[in-house]
Write a protein that binds this DNA or RNA. Structure first.
Length: 763
DNA sequence: TCCCAACGGGG
DNA sequence: GTGTACGTTGGGA
């Protein structure tokens, strides 16, 4: 049968594999006894009951003792019990070890022949059937409690249909609804189940409700339960043989690697950002009431539930192909990939590479070592203070994959650092790296980048937007993501092949290159506005043209080592830069640019937190847009003045002044009397219940006392008036001053109505 | 400047 | 899992 390894798990001495293709699926069991190594040996070890066999083996000219045991759990036990014999390679999960030792890659195509051997075959597109779901639950008391709060509705969406399972008081029941939903999932034979934050909420909640109601939540391929793992920062849910892919994880991942820039990652914002479409939004604290009220309210809730599943499905559809490609590169199942940082991805590639070379896999550092590494920071890229203010005619150039190309060009790696050799490079930091043999990370990078060039060539044979094009697009993207993570890996505190020397050499060479670039640009008569690590912003003025920039780029590229390249990134008619020096080193990246087609690129200004009022966020956005589109600080001034005036004259809806803050613990246990804490106390005094997790909505009102004293919950607002001065001075002005200070406008100019005359022109 | 608390997604 | 943990920001001291 031809297919791919979709999922696998460890069972004692065996590995259970789900092997499938478009139409068929089978479970394969392989014997693979767990093992690890000891550096030292003593006869007494032979009597340890968990040990089945001990074999001598040579690795890197060292004699090692391979200890084969009865099950994976014994490895954990023995690596502690036998600590004095120096265990190594004793923390590689059993299924990973199975794949790596057998040179098998999950998600790649194999022919599983009659002898039970996996033979490589030509790679093919993998198609998986996916469905999404979303729950709405009863939440009268704030954060819903799965022990008692029922699921009210479950939406389902796949390629062909979307629908909502629901019940009402006196019509159907929660139990029937869940059973209907589960039988739908079974019937459709889906491979991938998705949702939005379904790891953190929907799946754990569904599991709990099933156990409360006495329903078996049977979604896996082998009867094993949905496995919920609660972590300190996130909860993960997995199902054997059915891939659970949380589209929120995907979005968070893309944000982290900089492939997306969505500061607020709730479903509505993400959906709008990705597809440009609005979806219905319902404020969560209204859900229980809408359900109880029935009628039109209930209909709205059902529609919301339905749209959530559709949105989650569409997002997952965009991201899953990327994960499939990453999975093929790393060779581990998608499920594992979705939970990994890019550093961990790099590490698994290196482990494969090292094992093939017969190297010993270094142990992961101790927590003490990790802390030490973290405290000992590495100097990063060079940032030239921006010339603050508004500028016109800006050209931006950047080095293509600067860090990866440096790592290859100078063979920067832990394994090439300070070794004996005749031919080497010395970094500006003074560290020596041998030119040969090629290091682990440089080798990985070379292969990834070469592969990417080849894939991009193939991609260009197809029309953009076609399925063939997309297939290659995702593949080259996956290669790029991993290549770009190589520097991060070197300086990742938990890395097995961590190297401070390698890391600081990469950044020192990078600083050298950007300094050389600045020098050449200035020699050519360009004004350098700003540089950051690998990019340079040039002001063209009246004398320079785009053509001059192209010439400069060509000139610089002639002198760069092989593989390195400066590229023209874009032309921007206008931009605002803010210099915010933090200490001597770090400069926060804050700028806003407008492209020729009117698209805005904003970095570092975003006010996305819910503890800023709408009026502040909205005004800031308007100001940036006005300055960039019209190029006039005066126009921006008008915008702010108008808003301030409207606040003073109370022309703006109270809603715009609400500040949202979540109560994260018991109200009585707060030490600091922050505004939201005081507001919560007022609510309690008035007879309301305030539970952990509730989001408080409050407004700062006129009166005496501290800001906290004047934080009034929206429920108790009555006819109290918002404090115009507070919103002007502590919300709107701080938000907009970040920007317009740089174009020469002072706070006073905005704040006061000014002297008697001449003002009316603003209003 | 340092340190701590809050925040994130979901209802 | 061959387990136990993030990264950033704002405000107050």
């Amino acid at each position: 049968m031809k297919g791919f390894i979709f999922d696998l798990k460890s069972q004692g001495e065996k590995i259970k594999i789900v092997f499938k293709n478009k139409t068929q699926e089978k479970t394969i069991i392989k014997k693979f006894p767990p093992y690890f190594y000891l550096k030292k040996y003593d006869k007494a070890i032979e009597t340890v009951p968990e040990i089945k066999e001990i074999k001598k083996e040579k690795k890197e000219n060292q004699v090692l003792y391979k200890v084969i045991v009865d099950n994976p759990g014994s490895v954990i036990k023995l690596r502690k019990d036998l600590k004095e014999f120096e265990p190594i390679e004793a923390n590689i999960p059993h299924v990973y070890r199975f794949l790596i030792d057998n040179n098998l890659y999950a998600m790649r195509m194999y022919e599983h022949n009659e002898e039970g051997v996996f033979e490589k075959v030509v790679d093919e597109k993998i198609k998986l059937k996916m469905a999404s779901f979303d729950l709405e639950v009863y939440n009268k008391e704030g954060i819903p409690n799965a022990e008692k709060d029922a699921i009210l509705m479950i939406s389902y969406c796949d390629e062909k249909e979307s629908r909502v399972f629901h019940w009402e008081k006196g019509k159907g029941s929660e139990k029937e609804m869940i059973l209907d939903f589960l039988s739908k999932i079974k019937k459709e034979k889906i491979d991938v189940l998705t949702g939005y934050n379904s790891s953190g909420f929907d799946l754990p909640y569904l599991k709990k409700r099933c156990s409360v109601l006495g329903i078996e939540l049977d979604l896996s391929k082998d009867g094993s339960p949905v496995n919920i793992k609660k972590g300190a920062f996130s909860t993960k849910a997995d199902i054997f043989g059915l891939l659970h892919f949380d589209s929120y994880d995907g979005v968070a991942f893309l944000n982290k690697i900089g492939a997306m820039n969505i500061p607020k990652k709730d479903l509505e914002s993400v959906y709008k950002e990705m597809f440009g479409k609005e979806k219905l939004d319902v404020e969560p604290w209204k859900i229980w009431r809408m359900w109880e009220e029935g009628g039109e309210e209930l209909k709205t809730l059902i529609q919301y539930n339905k749209e959530d599943a559709i949105a989650a499905y569409e997002i997952a559809k965009e991201l899953l192909p990327l994960y499939i490609e990453i999975s093929k590169i790393i060779g581990l199942p998608i499920y594992e990939i979705t939970r990994m940082s890019t550093s961990q991805m790099v590490e698994w590639i290196l482990i494969r590479e090292a094992i093939q070379k017969g190297m010993i896999i270094p142990n992961t550092p101790s927590e003490k070592e990790v802390k030490q590494r973290m405290m000992n920071g590495i100097k990063g890229g060079f940032v030239k203070q921006p010339e603050k203010g508004l500028h016109e005619k800006i050209a931006v150039c950047d080095f293509r994959s600067l860090y990866p190309t440096l790592i290859i060009a100078y063979n920067i790696d832990k394994t090439t650092y300070n070794k004996k050799c005749d031919d080497y490079n010395v970094s500006p930091k003074g560290h020596r790296f041998c030119k040969k043999p090629i290091g682990l990370i440089p080798k990985m990078l070379k292969e990834l980048l070469e592969k990417r060039i080849e894939i991009k060539k193939q991609m260009k044979q197809f029309k953009e937007g076609t399925n063939d094009y997309k297939f290659f697009y995702y593949r080259q993207w996956a290669l790029k993501i991993i290549a770009n993570s190589s520097y991060g890996y070197m300086v990742y505190a938990r890395a097995k092949w961590y190297s401070r020397e390698a890391g600081e050499s990469v950044t020192s060479w990078a600083r050298e290159k950007i300094h050389e670039t600045i020098k050449k640009a200035e020699e050519d008569g360009f004004k350098v506005l700003y540089t950051d690590t690998d990019s340079i912003f040039l002001k063209l003025g009246d004398k320079k043209t785009k053509e001059d920039v192209f010439n400069l780029v060509r000139k610089i590229n002639k002198d760069l080592p092989e593989g390195m390249e400066l590229e023209f990134e874009g032309y921007f008619p206008r931009g605002i830069f803010v210099s915010s020096k933090k200490g001597e080193r770090a400069v926060k990246k804050k700028y806003a640019l407008i492209r020729e087609d009117g698209a805005l690129e904003i970095k570092g200004f975003e006010l996305v937190r819910r503890d800023w009022s709408n009026i502040a966020k909205e005004t800031q956005r308007k100001v940036i847009k006005t300055i960039l589109e019209q190029g006039s600080p005066e126009k921006a001034k008008e915008v702010v003045k108008k808003v301030i005036n409207e606040i003073r004259e109370r022309k703006i809806n109270l809603k715009e002044f609400i500040i949202y803050t979540q109560i994260k613990r018991k109200v009585s246990s707060y030490e600091q009397q922050a505004p939201h804490v005081k507001a919560a106390k007022k609510l309690i005094k008035a007879g309301y219940k305030v539970k952990t997790g509730n989001i408080l909505e409050y407004v700062i009102v006129q009166g005496s006392g501290s800001i906290s004293d004047r934080a009034i919950p929206i429920q108790l607002i009555g006819n109290k008036k918002y404090d115009a001065d507070y919103y002007i001075n502590n919300q709107v002005l701080p938000a907009v001053m970040k920007i317009i200070r740089e174009v020469g406008i002072t706070e006073d100019e905005l704040k006061y109505k000014g002297k008697q005359q001449g003002l009316n022109k603003w209003f």
